[in-house]
Structures are given as C-alpha cells and as structure tokens.
Nucleic acid binder design. Structure first.
Lengths: 215, 215
DNA sequence: TAGATTGTTAATCGATTAACAATC
DNA sequence: TAGATTGTTAATCGATTAACAATC
C-alpha cells in the first residue's frame, strides 16, 4: 500500500501533531502553514512538510494545510477510527488507574474486559467493566476475541501470562512490565511504557545539567 | 567534565543496560562480553562498545566487562546514588497509583510530599506520606526545598501550577500531562510520559501491520 | 500577475555498524 | 605466546535541515 515504509521517528511524532491540530481546531483555526505550526510546536517547517508528505499531499501550495482535514487524515493513519477490542491484565493500583484515566475510545480501542488473580480485586468495577477472575480468561477470549492487552501484571508472571495471551489470539501489547516481549516474540506488536526507566532518565538529566553549571 | 556531550539516544539506552546488568548479576554472571550482551539485548556489539565508551573505559581487552562494576558505574552516571527530593502534584487515581507503584529510592529520588486540591483526597496516605492541601505548597517548598515534581494534575491547571512550582524553586518535572513545558520554559528539565500518545502508537502499529499482510 | 507556501531534491548532520589495531 | 575482546577509527545508513522549482 504505502510506497516506502514510514520511519519510526515520523510515527512517534504523529500523535503530537494530532493533539496540536485538535487544539488549533478548537481555537478556530481553519488553515495553518508549516512555518506557523513549526513555530508553535518547536520543530522546523521542513520537518513538518517531510513528515506529512510521507502519507500523501495534504497541503495546498500558497495556502498551507486545512487544519481539520489534516487532523482527520492523521487520525485515519493512526487507526483512531477503529475500535480494537483490548483487555486489561492485572487490575491492581496501576492497571486500575491507567484504565480509568485513559480514554480508549478516542485512541482506537475499546476496553472490553479486565482480569486479575486477587480475590479482593475480582468483582470490582473499572468504569463500565467488572474485573474477572483470570481463570475465565480462555473462555472470554474465545467468545470476545480481544486483539490487544494492557500488561499491568507483576514481572514474575509476565512471561507465562504473555504466552497464554498469544495462544488465545492476542497479538498486540501495551506493556507496563519490564519483561522484554519484543525479544522473545517476533510476530507481536509491542508498545512499551517503562515508567521506571523514564524516571531514571529524569534523574540523569537533573544531575548532568548540574554538572554543566559547575564546569 | 565530560569531553563531548552524550547524545540522547545513548542516555535513553542506559536504564535498560542497567536493568539487564542487574539481572545478569542476580544470575551469577561475573563478566560479560559486548557480543554476548548484544545477543541477550537484541543490539549490536558495536553499539554497546560505543555506548559504554562515551563514559570512559569500563572494559578490559580480551576479557570483557565486569558485570557488577559496570552496573555500578552506570548507576553513578544516571545519578541513582542521589536522593533528589520530589513531590507529587495531583494525588488522584493516576498520581496515587504511580507514586505507590514506583520505587523512587532506587531511581535517584525521594518522595517527600503530595498535594491535591480535592477535600476527599487530602489527608489520605500514599505509602509513608500524607496528601496535603495545595494551599500548603508554598510553605512546604520553602521549608523542604523539593527540586522535582511529578505532574499528575488536570490539563487546564497545568500551566498555572507549573509557573508556581518553578517560582518555588522546582526545576525538574516528570510530566504526565499534555502541557508542553519544554516549549515555554527553557531552563527546566522535563521528562514527558505521554500515555495517550503511547496507546495511539500501538493503534498505528496494529493497523499498519494488518495492512502489510494484505499487500 | 505577484506573493505565499507547498512538495521534493540535495546537503548536512548524527547515529549505527563494520573493521581492525591495540592489548589484556 | 595465542586467543579473545576491547577501544577507536572509518564506512554506512538514516534522519533532519536547507534550498528551490512547482503551483495555487
């Protein structure tokens, strides 16, 4: 379909474009030039034009880009018009908070189930859905065919549970564990959120800028 | 101090090295070669040697790297021996879950306070600390001099609250909001965690691999 | 038509990989 | 000494920026 594969660097900028365009739209912008958008986003106009051109010609010479049309197109590229069924694995503090906090709908997903092993958690509600016993997982997958899973389970069961999920037909993971899915499984799609690593990078940044000042 | 500034790409790999080396240490490894580590981590040996050499000569020719010594050095580079005082802004679902879930100590921080505006949340405990009324923020900062903040506050107050925090001497942010700190404030250190964007990228990955199969 | 701004090619910059001499 | 493996330089690859002709 696409002539050349889109590079990862471009993809990772798309959600941010999508957000900014949404804000612009809300503020009544009809059109915007790459130069003006670049200024607002702290990028170069060149990069913006290169990025958008990966997907086709969205702009008009001498005019710029139509804000709402451009946003709509990026939304389609990102698959935000889809409703991929997704389940939550591990409804502890973090899993519960993330599932309650994130609007899955507007990001191309529909949360259809949540599973945990702990009796205190099973039966509790997260928004509209009820946390189920993990023993019901196989049957649930057979019936409802979730395609993706949010992994908020402890490190030590991550490998085993992931195996199972793949067996049951799940092929995409939003991974909050440190288990390295992408190394062991080649045919699945993984997006890692390594909160701990992120905090460590902040630690580095703090300490390295301090050194900078002293040198 | 450092001869050449270390590139961002290298820094973002360090926490992962640190984790892997910790596991190896736990498994009784004394030494490891760049080739063997590369295999385990899905990188090239070249890249590993380049990365480590940014910081000095950690290895020994003909032998490889001493696992625990290398890990210790990376820890120091990342500032994990520090205890930067940090506060939580916004102790709702997400803020509470993240603060309870993350081990700040092992990542160079000490959580010393939490603030919220909601009466139902104020007074509650997160681990050892009690959530305070945000009206106490100024005095607390004057007395305890936090240097960093976890931002888990709603989008619409993010800008205003951030101004205040910077005024009170906070210069580093672990930012879970979509407010674009780095554009408006140049002299602060920011690490963004854009959970929503991350989920969108998973959406793209799912849909683009499906297209791949059909083409 | 003149001015603006894109789409696109070329130039630059940075990051990754390959190669190999140094050395343990 | 011979074998292994680093540290480092050179080559390649990819991503960003600059430039400009095309065109609205």
């Amino acid at each position: 379909m696409s002539k050349n594969a889109i590079s990862n660097s471009v993809i990772r900028r798309l959600p941010r474009y999508y957000r900014f365009l949404g804000e612009l739209e809300g503020n009544g912008y009809i059109r915007i030039s790459s130069r003006e958008l670049a200024e607002k986003m702290g990028l170069t106009a060149s990069q913006i034009r290169q990025d958008f051109n990966c997907f086709g010609e969205f702009g008009q010479q001498g005019y710029g880009y139509n804000v709402s049309e451009l946003r709509r197109q990026i939304g389609i590229i990102l698959g935000l018009d889809k409703k991929t069924p997704i389940i939550l694995m591990g409804a502890g503090n973090l899993g519960k908070a993330i599932s309650a906090h994130i609007d899955f709908q507007s990001r191309g997903f529909e949360l259809i189930g949540a599973f945990d092993i702990s009796p205190e958690i099973i039966g509790k509600k997260i928004g509209m859905i009820t946390v189920r016993d993990i023993s019901e997982l196989e049957q649930f997958c057979a019936e409802n065919k979730p395609q993706a899973a949010v992994l908020c389970i402890p490190q030590d069961v991550a490998e085993k549970e992931t195996e199972r999920l793949i067996e049951y037909g799940i092929h995409a993971f939003w991974n909050f564990t440190h288990y390295d899915l992408s190394i062991t499984h080649e045919n699945v799609v993984v997006e890692n959120v390594h909160l701990g690593d992120s905090l460590i990078i902040l630690s580095y940044a703090i300490n390295s800028t301090e050194n900078e000042i002293n040198s």
